[in-house]
Design a protein around this nucleic acid. Structure first.
Lengths: 252, 252
DNA sequence: CGCTCCTAATATGTCGGAGTAAATAGGGAG
DNA sequence: CTCCCTATTTACTCCGACATATTAGGAGCG
């Protein structure tokens, strides 16, 4: 019985070595491990995760922890369990790819270029439309949030995490100004993708242009209540971002 | 170690169909109960769910089953648990509102009109753009799927579940033809909302116009590879749907 | 009197074992 | 060869115990 304590610390320390901050809880760490394994293609749809007991022993954790991790994956549409049939990886179209955590797993390894393209295409569709709505519905507080984020972007550049957070805040403020919860939820997903690619571009030593002027143009149009201008300015912004991303990805 | 023998498409499709429903498993039923309670506003952000033991006793289930349900809610961003502090409902902007299951919980009771408006606004943004992409990228198989769905819509009308399923299939086929996974994921969310409102309009005895011609126009444009025409036709379609929905909701 | 640190209480997290229900595989009867 | 029945495997549920973490309150000290 006292063994339980030791193996617990062991497992947590181990998971900490492999990836920092996946989940503070044990089942969170397991979900992270399995999630990244699935997203990276280590398991493909149709594959069966060997039985509870086998897997729990292999991971050196109890069945409870393993089961709770499976519940998480099930909730996100990655797997489904049936008695006797085992736990099976579901087809890709059942995955909640827009779930922030799933997205994090997708970007934990080397994400599929096609998938990144998908997200940027979605962004190119949603964000200009959101900017148009924001221009019509924003209030003073929204504008202040955007302005603050813009100032923070100027202070810290996109080379720092603080700068990227400010970038996310700016875009989130726009989504928030649309007064549309469904759109707002997307900001988390899109933000994760953009953040990753921004880091990626930087790793590739290819951080090209100053993004501030483009952002300012979007802000000005929204502040002026110019719906068409906001949409167009945002369109330019995401197109340029996509262009940069694409070139640095194929370059690699 | 998947033995290629016994897992066929049938088994996967079957498991997919029976996956919906209030929850055949116990923890699924609990998650449903708590999820609908949260989405309906019975619990508001910041509220804390009384302790595990207390709640498990109240629901007459074991702590394990309750905990697995909580893991599901946690995975969807509805709640977060911390030792000693309890399990508290997270602020709304952390909720994965586009998760199909969460959406189902939102529509289980009387959904917030503002939220429905949000989803239709999202639809009005995404679907025309998707139709544009579909017109450029669809292949013969995509067109066949759309055509079949259209035929099914004609056979069963929108008054039957089979007809509404055909409607969803039609729109899903368009999203699928975009070759964009991120967009495809949205189809499930949007489809759920549209399905609910369609049923709602019917309950309100206000099923107004024949939707077939509008759908045919979209199909024709996509089949012809007319990107602009497809976007415009879809735009008309969703605008009319939104108009109908709005009028029947305020009428009530 | 106020601050810091330590201790204790409490609720979540983890564990492993027992028993139940379901679905498949394999064998037996027709 | 087909159909049904049985047996086994596996997930699902429950239980009681211990470990851990966070908070709250009190002791000690400046």
């Amino acid at each position: 019985m006292p063994e339980a304590g030791f193996m617990n610390e062991d497992a947590i320390a181990k998971s900490g070595d492999e990836a920092r901050g996946p989940g503070r809880r044990l089942h969170g760490a397991i979900a992270h491990k399995l999630g990244t394994a699935i997203l990276s293609g280590k398991y493909v749809p149709g594959d069966i995760l060997s039985g509870e007991v086998a897997f729990a022993e292999e991971l050196q954790v109890s069945r409870s922890a393993y089961r709770e991790a499976i519940q998480v994956l099930t909730a996100k549409g990655l797997v489904a369990s049936r008695p006797k049939a085992g736990t099976r990886v579901l087809p890709r179209d059942r995955w909640n790819l827009l779930d922030p955590e799933v997205l994090g797993w997708a970007f934990a390894g080397e994400p599929d270029i096609e998938f990144v393209r998908s997200l940027f295409e979605l962004r190119a569709i949603v964000e200009p439309a959101a900017a148009r709505l924001a221009a019509q519905r924003r209030d003073k507080e929204d504008l202040k949030t955007m302005k603050d984020a813009l100032a923070a972007m100027r202070r810290h550049t996109l080379t720092t995490e603080a700068g990227r957070a400010a970038d996310r805040d700016f875009h989130k403020a726009i989504l928030q100004a649309t007064r549309n919860d469904a759109l707002l939820v997307l900001s988390a997903s899109i933000g994760a993708a953009v953040n990753w690619t921004t880091q990626f571009k930087q790793r590739a030593r290819a951080l090209p242009r100053n993004p501030i002027p483009d952002h300012v143009r979007v802000y000005d149009a929204i502040a002026a209540g110019d719906a068409a201008g906001a949409a167009e300015a945002m369109n330019v912004l995401v197109d340029l971002a996509l262009e940069d991303t694409h070139s640095s990805m194929v370059a690699k």
